[in-house]
Amino acid sequence: MFVDRNITEVTIMDVDKKPVLFIILAVVTILAGTLATTFIPLFMGTASPSRENIKFYTALELEGRDIYIREGCNNCHTQMVRPLKFETARYGDYSTLADSAIDRPHLWGSKRTGPDLARVGRKYPAAWHVIHMKSPQSMYPKSNMPPYAWLADRDLNTKYTEAKMKTLGYPYTAADLRALEGKTEMDAIIAYLLRLGNELR
């Protein structure tokens, strides 16, 4: 261990001799950018909009969303229409803060191997989705989307649905939960897809 012979000589600029001081300085340096761009904006209204006109997810839609997460759909699909002409022409009006205001976690995505889904709820009916999910190749022969026919064979696990709705603070009734009986995972994912683009009341 080092005993610093004369304390006056050792200043903050000799931090390469003082690991503990170095660590503190590194943490402060890291926290500067963290506070400014990430922590403080959490409490500024601009990044978390008002929630009055937002429709909360129904129990079935939420379970469908969790299947979307479980199957990693966000690895190929985005939910983010950018305010650029060629995007709004292709997908519909651009995404706003309100569209994802209650999404925990967000599913904006970062890669479009498949098309953007932010407005897909306005584009295709449930029947279209059933055929497409079971065999994307039956509709688009050259599609590289994996087939998810097996979702129709799996009953929806609703053991944690109530706990989920409570955790997220989404309103629900006992009737909503009862309505989940007999639903399959395919019903749930399609309910979620039909909601995308119809977030507002």
């Binding site: 990044a47 994802s100 925990r104 967000h106 904006w108």
Partner: peptide, 10 residues
């Protein structure tokens, strides 16, 4: 579930 929502979470 993430403690952050939407744009904050992103």
């Amino acid at each position: 579930y993430s403690v952050y929502a939407g744009a904050n979470d992103a």
